[in-house]
């Protein structure tokens, strides 16, 4: 009988959870690798032993103050970018959408640059990320105001283009008017994105925001599935699209806004990862969310580990490396889309 070849829904579900488990395990392995790789030789076992014993030895400090925040932030930021990318592609029904398409990333970057420029950055450690988060929230308020007035998806994209170009222009203006070349260089380097020299305080700042953001994005999975057949069909299936947009934009702002606020702008992860993983979940937008989150974490941890292994000093910026890896993928995506058209 031909049904023998048809995977039953149960096995379909099992293979999905197997994939999720596999990617989660790979994320843990990459995080461990990220802990093990660094500029100082580190005996991980001894460092862990010291730390658990409460001894403030140098290896323990390197592990907890330098390596651990870097690995955790890499995983959190990568997860946020991958998840938000998949959610935006599902919302806009476009494989070329990325987490920052509605202007959140560039607004967050502009918020952080404002803090740099005003000199608050030196005042206290969290001034920079807080400025970034403030920028992202400002963009969200603007988008919500538009959405509340019954704006459709197309209006949101256009508003995103406007926010992107305005925030970009303001960031350039800040560079243009920078008091000295060092300040300008600092801003430019920060914008390129990096996980270096972050501390556990950064982790504690963004973790709650990201968790809420992830929950908002992941809870949208059924609605994103419904949206596959267009907005009218999704609504006829009982989904409130205005509420869906609020959840997705709010979730992306919390997850990606806080990611950009602590690491700077890291491109291509949110674009490439969902695209690569989509065939593995039968192109279902709802199932792509969690999978893309783990995929993003793996890619970001891999890129961050790679740049520390490369014999280039000072180390390359993370945003540069992800773009270098991501651009060829994007080209192949464009080629494939052209063949399908």
């Amino acid at each position: 009988m031909s049904t023998a070849a048809i995977p039953s829904p149960a096995s379909d579900r099992m293979s999905y959870w197997r994939l999720v488990t596999l990617l989660a395990a790979a994320t843990l392995v990459m995080a461990a690798l990220s802990l093990a790789v660094g500029y100082a030789r580190l005996d991980l076992v001894a460092a862990l032993g010291d730390w658990f014993a409460g001894r403030q030895s140098l290896p323990a400090l390197v592990l907890v103050e330098l390596r651990l925040p870097r690995a955790i932030l890499g995983a959190l930021v990568g997860f946020s970018l991958g998840l938000a990318g998949a959610a935006m592609q599902g919302l806009l029904r476009n494989p070329l959408a990325e987490p920052g398409i509605v202007g959140i990333s560039s607004a967050a970057a502009f918020g952080a640059v404002t803090v740099f420029y005003s000199g608050f950055a030196g005042a206290f450690a969290l001034a920079l990320p807080l400025g970034g988060i403030a920028g992202a929230l400002l963009a969200v308020l603007l988008l919500f105001a538009l959405n509340g007035r019954g704006a459709g998806t197309m209006t949101l994209i256009l508003a995103g283009v406007a926010i992107n170009s305005f925030a970009g222009a303001m960031t350039s203006l800040a560079l243009n008017l920078a008091p000295n070349p060092y300040a300008a260089l600092e801003i430019v380097f920060w914008l390129m994105g990096s996980l270096a020299d972050r501390s556990l305080i950064h982790v504690w700042l963004v973790l709650p925001l990201m968790l809420v953001g992830w929950a908002l994005l992941l809870s949208s999975a059924p609605a994103l599935d419904g949206l596959t057949l267009g907005e009218d069909t999704a609504r006829s299936l009982g989904f409130d699209l205005t509420w869906l947009r609020v959840r997705l934009i709010g979730g992306a702002a919390l997850a990606v806004g806080s990611a950009v606020a602590v690491t700077g702008a890291i491109g291509f992860v949110g674009l490439v990862v969902p695209h690569l993983l989509r065939p593995l979940v039968g192109h279902k937008p709802g199932r792509l969310l969690l999978v893309s989150g783990f995929g993003g974490a793996i890619l970001l941890l891999a890129a961050d580990t790679m740049l520390r292994l490369m014999p280039i000093r000072p180390e390359l910026k993370l945003g540069v490396v992800t773009a270098l890896i991501g651009a060829p993928f994007l080209f192949s995506l464009i080629q494939r889309l052209r063949r399908e058209a």
Partner: peptide, 10 residues
Amino acid sequence: AQGGGVQWQM
């Protein structure tokens, strides 16, 4: 819906 397209290759 009329002429309903499907975005993803499901």
